[in-house]
């Protein structure tokens, strides 16, 4: 049957070719980058055979270790706080008859998505540099706070989606069966919301981990994260060490995205 010619209503001439070209475009640069990470030679231009040399060197580099640890601390704290705040906000803004201020809340929560990062970055630079002078404190708190703010809308997205797809009569059923609001939340809402919360946390974590621009402007001296460290390195001469760091980073992102995908599929 399959070999019988028929009129395929879905076909559009040239579309398949362009699509395959697009996928090639998407993966060719990444493939190049990864390939050179395993290059034994000193330069990113000459292929000197397969080696893990640059991974070893990167992992021994104190500055890299330091930046990686800082990235992890910031991403974990920011994603945790953002997820908690986003969960509460999502509960307050879904499955409710519209009330005064609801639209305002949506706009407020999604605001970090609407403004170009560079604008937020310099605005934070202005405010935080003032506060740093006033208080004398110049620790990681500024970075964590800034990251938390732009992570909230990302954490909010899947949690809200999950809540909205949840049958609101489930909580009514719990209340009908003598569960106080708190117990209804603990026993019914929270367990059902869990996949959304996990997805939200992971999104926030990846977003925080990836951030370059805001971090670059908010950080004090010696507060490089992995991305800002790489940005500094790229400006100087390029060694395969940056490729190795980028490849490791990439592997982590792919892992997180895969987990995210699997969680979301289970939900459906």
């Amino acid at each position: 049957m399959a070999s019988r010619p028929h009129f395929d209503i879905r076909r559009q001439p040239g579309f398949v070719a362009i699509a395959l070209f697009t996928f090639a475009v998407l993966y060719l640069p990444i493939a190049t980058l990864v390939a050179y990470a395993f290059n034994a030679s000193d330069s990113v231009t000459v292929w000197g055979g397969l080696s893990l040399r640059w991974f070893v060197e990167a992992s021994r580099n104190a500055a890299v270790q330091d930046a990686a640890w800082r990235s992890f601390v910031i991403a974990t704290s920011a994603a945790t706080v953002a997820t908690i705040a986003a969960t509460m906000a999502a509960i307050a803004t879904t499955r409710t008859p519209p009330y005064r201020g609801l639209g305002f809340k949506y706009a407020f929560i999604n605001q970090p998505l609407m403004v170009p990062e560079i604008v937020t970055a310099v605005a934070l630079l202005i405010v935080f540099s003032r506060i740093k002078v006033w208080t004398g404190y110049s620790g990681l708190g500024y970075l964590i706070l800034a990251h938390t703010a732009f992570c909230i809308p990302f954490a909010y997205l899947p949690i809200r989606a999950r809540l909205e797809s949840m049958d609101s009569s489930l909580e009514r059923a719990a209340a009908d069966l003598y569960a106080t609001p708190w117990r209804a939340f603990r026993r019914v809402t929270l367990p059902l919301l869990r996949p959304g919360i996990i997805a939200g946390f992971m999104l926030a974590f990846v977003i925080s981990l990836d951030d370059v621009v805001i971090t670059e402007f908010v950080k004090s001296g010696g507060q490089d994260t992995l991305p800002t460290y790489m940005l500094g390195q790229i400006r100087r001469e390029v060694t395969p060490e940056v490729n190795a760091i980028a490849t490791a980073f990439l592997a982590l992102s792919v892992l997180l995205v895969t987990v995210f995908f699997v969680i979301n599929r289970k939900k459906a």
């Binding site: 049958d167 489930l170 059923a173 019914v188």
Partner: peptide, 20 residues
């Protein structure tokens, strides 16, 4: 009285069985 203090129970149209 809130619903959880009323000795009245409901069979919901969608049944609202707890899926977990």
């Amino acid at each position: 009285l809130p619903p959880f203090k009323r000795p009245i129970n409901t069979v919901f149209q969608s049944y609202a069985l707890f899926p977990h």
